[in-house]
């Protein structure tokens, strides 16, 4: 669709997307990865069972790359993000695997060291911009506090940097806005402030957990644009966690599809969307209503995602899968190459 609405040309410029991403068919990157997650397992012990929220998840993100993590509620995508920034609330715990930031292992860091990593090297943007900001402090104070915590700057320099950040995330009249409180900002503007906070110490990686879900469609587009532009300008990598395939489609370079705590498919975004290899991804794509498609009844996946205390044996998707066969019920498939993507499905074993 082309539209006659001006004044956003700046934002409309097509991003020069990182070329090395396309067509890659190996899990190991040729570029040294920024973040590597190997066989991550996150458990939530409850009184009679231990719930496994994330089970054997492996992926990596290269510098400057946007990795989308998509899945329905309860798929484990947010828990994966929380594990990377070390924000799993007790009694939950990382029960296995490794998380590497560059060459450094970060999943077993003591809390104090992890706090320095958080903010300095990994920034975070969460769903609700209102609860991410402290309502009692001005936006400027929160920004300056974050800046001086992580960077060795004088108060004046920090103030200057805060103003720059606000201007960079597109907040008009930053000199006036810096002394205002979060409630004086609209939802979209608040999310911009949260992004400014995440960027404050110029981290190499941002974990964005449903950053646009609480926003209206027109504001969503603005925020996504902003995230993309900032990542391009700063070379920041993003782990974009969302349930919205539309947001993934226009933002991510690669996408990981999660189901019941595991990655069922991972690959370049256009391949996963246009040629999904896993039956779950196929069903998911078919169930998204589109204004381009005709109004036939939507493809639907029958049933619901299993609860964590009742994950079926074998492939967790097998009770809902239209192509299920005997092996799916017995054996759990690992990710295997299918063309340019990887899918965890026995259909692709010949």
């Amino acid at each position: 669709m082309t539209l006659p609405i001006p004044e956003v040309d700046r934002l409309q410029q097509r991003s020069d997307r990182a070329a090395p991403i396309a067509g890659r068919a190996t899990l190991a990157n040729t570029v040294a990865p920024l973040l590597t997650v190997e066989e991550l397992r996150v458990e939530f012990p409850s009184r009679d069972v231990t719930l496994v929220a994330v089970d054997g998840v492996s992926f990596s993100i290269t510098p400057g790359e946007v990795l989308g993590v998509v899945g329905e509620s309860g798929a484990g995508k947010s828990v994966t993000g929380a594990a990377v920034i070390g924000l799993i609330d007790p009694p939950g715990r990382i029960a296995g695997g490794r998380i590497m930031l560059g060459d450094r292992r970060i999943d077993n860091l003591p809390p104090e060291a992890m706090r320095r990593v958080r903010g300095r090297e990994i920034g975070a943007v969460f769903q609700d911009p209102l609860t991410s900001l402290n309502p009692l402090y001005t936006v400027g104070r929160q920004l300056i506090e974050t800046i001086t915590t992580h960077l060795d700057l004088s108060p004046r320099a920090a103030h200057k940097r805060a103003l720059e950040l606000l201007a960079e995330v597109g907040i008009p009249a930053p000199k006036r806005r810096i002394d205002q409180y979060p409630h004086q900002f609209s939802g979209g503007m608040r999310q911009r402030v949260v992004i400014a906070l995440a960027l404050a110490a110029s981290p190499k990686l941002i974990i964005a957990d449903e950053p646009t879900t609480a926003l209206d469609v027109s504001i969503q587009a603005q925020i996504i644009m902003l995230l993309k532009r900032l990542c391009r300008d700063h070379g920041t990598a993003v782990m974009l966690i969302t349930h919205d395939m539309g947001v993934i489609a226009e933002t991510a370079d690669r996408v990981a599809v999660m189901y019941a705590g595991r990655i069922v498919e991972i690959g370049p975004v256009s391949d996963v969307i246009h040629r999904p290899a896993h039956p779950y991804t196929r069903g998911l794509m078919g169930s998204i209503p589109s204004i381009a498609a005709d109004r036939e009844s939507l493809a639907q996946i029958d049933g619901t995602m299993p609860r964590l205390n009742a994950i079926p044996p074998g492939c967790a998707f097998h009770p809902r899968c239209p192509h299920v066969f005997d092996r799916c019920r017995r054996e759990r498939p690992e990710l295997m190459p299918v063309g340019p993507t990887f899918a965890a499905c026995w259909l692709h074993v010949h």
């Binding site: 991003s15 539309g246 489609a249 226009e250 794509m285």
Partner: peptide, 10 residues
């Protein structure tokens, strides 16, 4: 409205 058919296009 995000358009799934045009990946990577803002």
């Amino acid at each position: 409205v995000p358009d799934l058919t045009r990946t990577g296009m803002p």
